[in-house]
Design a protein around this nucleic acid. Structure first.
Lengths: 198, 198
DNA sequence: ACCTGAACACCGTTCAAGT
DNA sequence: ACCTGAACACCGTTCAAGT
């Protein structure tokens, strides 16, 4: 009651945190997470290495803050394409996230070691799956089949992000994926049982 | 001519290298690549850390040796399932490689930093794609469409490896994938143009 | 509340020196 | 040819001390 932090203090703290996140974002995206040492990051942010630990729990916590900032930016822009077709939305998403570059596989690698990053990764998956939910349901799939198809969609998106093939190849993959989801009309027309190839 | 290494010397070197690779394999698979320090590995192999550099270029080189050893083992066992259906072969592959656990995403992460690992990763992709080639061709796809479908297949396999969902979910994903590849008979039966969802 | 200097226990890697 | 002891330049993180 008596010694509450002033509003200005809180604001300053958030502003400085945002500064650090901005610097970290540039370095992480251009040089990668592992190659960006705490001391290099501190130098770029014009502070001492240990000062970072006043604003963040640890290095993974900084990564989460960077990922969250990027996601917030993307979510804001996403409004402009939210009503487009599945294919266009996927194209936009892959285009956008490919700029994040090496961070995608870093998240996968560190998710098994850091709880905060695992949590963020889960959130991303939930979001990616929500992109497919409506179209998969519209295709007539439900239950485990629908879940499997949604998983296929997210795996393909992640594959495009981690491997970043040339743009026309990415487009071909997205088109193919979209058509396999939509090519499931109410009229059955192909063998639906198990397939014995060869 | 005069001071050639004896055969026994060569043999010993290979045997010791194999010993180290065996120890490294266990540690990498159980604890992960990053968490297994050179000094821990050396201690487990009953040698000094710097001795490792007599047998290997660097830590990534050890990882490549471990990956190669695992791949060789798997290739040998693969003979037993080579003539099964695509679904069964994929199930076997995913089952087998999921035991490698955290190494899959480590390879992705380090491929952007180490040339030897990038090379190995390329080889793995070529192999995974070869698994799908015949069935995709048999489905009637060709050219860029076939390549896109093959890429989808490898992305789904990698997704299953890195995320390791429960076995029944993995099976559902594989079944769905196989059926989308095979569900492309000579008789056209669904809209093939662009799809406008919503 | 915020920031620092100095230290801690590591890390992967190198190299002169031994056999 | 093979192996080591000792060192190198780092790394992420902690903490007592300052303001």
């Amino acid at each position: 009651m008596s010694d509450m932090p002033k509003n200005r203090g809180l604001h300053d703290r958030d502003a400085k945190r945002a500064d650090i996140v901005g610097v970290a974002r540039e370095l992480f995206v251009s040089d990668g997470f592992e190659r960006t040492s705490i001391s290099r990051l501190a130098k770029a942010a014009a502070i001492t290495p240990n000062t970072l630990y006043w604003y963040f729990e640890d290095k993974d916590d900084i990564l989460v803050a960077v990922l969250t900032a990027i996601a917030a930016e993307d979510t804001a822009v996403y409004a402009g394409v939210a009503d487009r077709s599945l294919g266009e939305r996927l194209g936009w998403l892959v285009d956008r996230l490919q700029r994040v570059g090496p961070l995608v596989s870093t998240v996968h690698d560190r998710a098994s070691k850091s709880a905060v990053i695992a949590e963020w990764h889960n959130g991303f998956h939930a979001y990616a799956e929500s992109l497919f939910a409506a179209d998969v349901a519209a295709s007539g799939l439900s239950g485990p089949d629908a879940e499997a198809m949604i998983r296929i969609g997210t795996f393909v998106v992640e594959g495009l992000l981690t491997h970043a093939p040339p743009p026309e190849a990415s487009r071909a993959v997205i088109d193919q994926l979209v058509s396999t989801i939509a090519r499931r009309p109410t009229s059955r027309c192909a063998v639906s049982g198990s397939i014995q190839a060869r």
